[in-house]
Design a protein around this nucleic acid. Structure first.
Length: 114
RNA sequence: UGAGUAAAUCAGAUGAUCGCGGGCGCCGGGCCGAAAGGUGGCGUCUGAGGAAAGUCCGAGCUCCGCAGGGCAGGGUGCUGGGUAAUACCCAGUGGGGGCGACCCCAAGGAAAGUGCCACAGAAAUGUAGACCGCCACUUCCCAAGUGGUAAGGAUGGAACGGUGCGGUAAGAGCGCACCAGCGGCCGGGUGACCGGCCGGCUAGGUAAACCCCACCUGGAGCAAGACCGAAUAGGGGAACAUUUGCGGCGGCCCGCCGUUGCUUCCCGGGUAAGGUCGCAUGAGUCGCGCUGGCAACAGCCGUCCCAGAUAGAUGAUCAUCCACGACAGAACUCGGCUUAUGAUUUGCUCACUGA
RNA sequence: UGCGGGAUGGUGUAGUGGUAGCACAGGUGACUCUGGAUCAUCUAGCCUAGGUUCGAGCCCUGGUCCCGCAG
């Protein structure tokens, strides 16, 4: 079983936000950027605007679960940051998973084109 | 049945699969790192709250050499008790609200002193003050003037005790009775205070204004701090000052301590995964245990070990059941307070209806 | 996580317990052939809930929101 590597330093997050590209729908924003490593790394964020600590924890756990179960669908060698948006509050696992897979498909097809 | 009031309890449950943090046992000597150190597999146990929240109080713990004295500052404020301590809790006193069960109160001192009381009003604390009234006197009358008067009117949140009788030219504690307030004595109570008697008759409000009185109070906070390892540096330059100067102990003074160059500014180094501990046995949980106490609580006995992350662990799926699940996530640890919030149960009160 | 500070018209800010001001912005009118400038005038406010007081923007208590600091 592969373990999820997490992005830990604020500097790495900054790099992904400023240099990376992003795709989004009404539930979440997905940032990504080449990290020059052999593995992918993930970061899960939910700002204070989303809600209180319970809500933010819930959202981050959903992200974590979705990434864990679909880790083989992510292209290797990237840093990914998942940012929660307001509409995600109260959503179920299936809705989040569906949303993320759609975004991933979007990325891979675009990479195929260019 | 409805409305209310006081208290107590629970915080979706059970099973299966995958996933995450921690403890313990066994196996392994590989990988990462400069080092300190970290990391794996299997088994087993365990893993958020009543408020974990707000950070409003109080403590423990750590550092500031010691935590010393005084002043200033801050806090508390009916009484007695509980506690490690408190602004908390319990029992009472006084006051207020409610038909009631019951609830609420920063509730010391206004004759120690100072300030303020806008506008209105004659006058806002001075035994001051006469606008309209009332009464007496003077001028021939209308009316005006002088004096007396704070009972009535008017103003105001508040007008120098209130009500009644007497008294008087009209009035006034001027006199008397009762009530409120003040002082003294006696009795009860540990005390706040309560009850009774006597006295001279008057003292406005505001202390969540300054203040007085009594009591308490050093400062910072786990990003506190300690240890291990690496690197750097006991670096450089400029200005100032030249002797008891400078610095530290929250402010000032005393007192104490450190350093002989010290202070200020600039450059350089570091913040690119440093690590480990602090960090979970404690003012601990439970028992309708026993003893003392009205109670808060204390003592004794038994019982249990109950999260310890460090970018931060609790989630997903399936099945069954119900009321279809509110507020909400530990971050050094406790005791309170306040705020948010779903459901259930019990006692008591009031109203209505029926027997 | 711990500590500290703040909230006044649309914006930036004053305000010893006694009618809430000022500047800019906005509306209306005047001046002008028109606009600008100028003049006059109007609108709109004390974060919120209680308490103390005769009376709170100010004093006290609870809550909400915003901002800053940290080896």
């Amino acid at each position: 079983m592969t373990v999820i590597n997490k992005i830990k330093k604020n500097k790495d997050y900054r790099k992904v936000y400023s240099c990376g590209k992003s795709v989004a729908d009404r539930y979440l924003v997905l940032f990504f950027w080449v990290n020059n490593l052999e593995t992918s790394r993930f970061g899960f964020t939910a700002s204070k605007k989303i809600g209180n600590a319970v809500v933010r924890n819930r959202v981050r756990r959903l992200f974590k679960e979705v990434c864990r179960l679909n880790i083989n669908k992510f292209p290797v060698g990237f840093d990914y940051v998942l940012l929660a948006r307001n509409a995600i509050v109260g959503r179920k696992y299936q809705q989040v998973e569906e949303s993320l897979l759609k975004l991933l498909k979007n990325i891979t097809s675009r990479r195929g084109q260019t």
